[in-house]
């Protein structure tokens, strides 16, 4: 006597939205983050590259260009969505239970808030 489930016993998950962001973020992290870590935080600091690489004028003019703004926003925002999604599911994996509604606010809401901050700061840097 099996009580077999039918399609009506299952409801559509909304996971595809965050999965799309997670996947896009995964691509961004894979192709850009290693080079960025080297550029911003290792090559200059260990003496391989010149300090001038991180000079204010240079970085500011990059962040003032429209393509610079787009790059910075895309990299930070998508990296955030990718990593919060992984951290969220990672918590499940180690049996730390957070109610779904709270998780959505903390993780995806948080990533959205942080991305909005990036957007605002990019505007503040001007053209």
């Amino acid at each position: 006597m099996t009580i077999r489930k039918t399609a009506s016993d299952y409801s559509r998950s909304h996971e595809p939205i965050v999965w799309g962001l997670f996947s896009a973020g995964g691509v961004i992290v894979a192709f850009f983050i290693p080079a960025l870590i080297l550029l911003t935080s290792l090559l200059v600091q260990v003496g391989i590259a010149d300090e001038a690489v991180l000079s204010f004028d240079r970085v500011q003019s990059f962040a003032q260009a429209w393509w610079g703004k787009l790059f910075i926003l895309a990299v930070i925002a998508l990296s955030l969505y990718h990593t919060v999604h992984r951290i969220h599911h990672g918590l499940h994996d180690v049996h730390i239970h957070i109610p779904d509604s709270l998780a959505i606010i903390i993780f995806y809401g948080g990533a959205t808030v942080l991305s909005c901050l990036v957007f605002v700061w990019l505007l503040a840097i001007g053209w």
Partner: peptide, 22 residues
Amino acid sequence: EGTAIFVFLYALILMLGLLRLA
């Protein structure tokens, strides 16, 4: 999965840098 923690922290560091730039 744990690599996400480090990349997340780096993203926050980039954000801090952006704020200081502004």
